[in-house]
Simulated scan of single mutants.
Amino acid sequence: MNSIISNKRTIFWLVAPGFLLFTAMIFIPILVSFYYSLTNWDGVAAYQFIGLSNFIDIVTQDDVFWKSLLNAILLGLGLVLIQHPFAVLIAMLVQYCGRFEKLLRVCIFIPSIISTFVTTQLWVSVFNTQFGLLNRILEMVGLESWKQDWLGDSKLAIGCIIFVCMWQGFGYAFLLYYAGIKGVPKDLHEAAMLDGASQIQLNLKIVFPLLAPVLRVNIILAVVAAFKQMETVYLMTGGGPANSTQFLSTYLYSKAFREGLYGYGNAISILFVIICLLITVLLNRALKKDVGEY
């Protein structure tokens, strides 16, 4: 093994296929996208090179872009501050459910493996103004004044989307935390119990601190997923009403393929990539504290 690792030619041939695949599938498309972002191409006809005009217009004049960015930030905050603490709590509680533990684990994870189209249409039906389950329940309990056009009101639609996104991704967050909890050695549990620690103290003082590596990965994945969000938004509202639920992905799609502003859409995609990279680097640095090993 040591001879293989020390052989530079062997290392090159081992790394080359992955590097070539990365270059062909990611790096080159990004460069091509950057080139088109410097043009006014509509995706079909001839185009002109206009330099950084698209980027300047996006940053200085495009309010919808900033709205899309704000929506992504709100979703990221919702995932980190609401979904993940709840996922940690449920993961800690499930392990004490005895023979029902496996059943609960499966039930919690089911929404995450169902098709996004199916789950999204389910919630669109729930939020429907005329026959939706939510308004029907409010009517049944005498709260008719609370009935709303949930996906037609710009102030309510974004909240509905954030809720559905948190619901859909809850299973993955739960599973990672559950696996992390199960990975804590039983020796630590036994030692803490012998020292007189209660179950609450055991979870707060031992289990939760040891979840720091899992927490770091989960937070980074959640924030990046929030900025990449597209399918749920596109299927529920398409970015409406009045662009109030646009996210970066849906907005660049709308600009490039609906309005025919292909160069402008590519400029948004480049900013999208830069924002995701910056966020990943910043989160890695902010959460890089060495927590040791189990």
Rank of each mutant, 00 (worst) to 15 (best):
M1Y: 05
I4N: 07
K8Q: 04
T10R: 10
L14N: 08
G18C: 05
T23K: 03
A24Y: 12
I30W: 09
S37P: 02
D42Q: 07
Q48E: 11
F49M: 10
F49L: 11
V59W: 05
Q61H: 13
G78H: 05
G78W: 11
G78T: 07
Q95G: 08
R99W: 10
V106K: 06
V106A: 14
I108V: 12
P111Y: 06
P111H: 03
T116I: 15
F117K: 03
T119P: 03
T120R: 00
Q121K: 11
L122G: 12
V124M: 09
L133C: 07
R136K: 12
E139H: 07
G142Q: 08
E144A: 14
S145Y: 11
W146K: 10
W146Y: 15
Q148S: 13
L156H: 06
W167Y: 15
F174S: 11
Y177A: 10
A179M: 06
I181C: 07
D187E: 14
L188S: 05
A191T: 06
A192L: 00
A197Q: 00
Q199H: 15
Q199Y: 13
I206H: 00
P213D: 01
V214K: 02
I219D: 04
V223L: 09
A225H: 09
F227H: 01
T237F: 04
Q246W: 06
L248Y: 03
T250F: 01
L252Y: 12
E259G: 06
E259C: 03
G265L: 06
G265V: 04
N266G: 10
N266R: 11
I268R: 00
I270M: 09
L271M: 13
F272L: 05
I275A: 13
L278K: 00
T280Q: 15
T280P: 03
L283T: 05
N284C: 12
L287D: 05
K288R: 15
K289R: 14
V291Y: 14
E293N: 15
Y294Q: 09
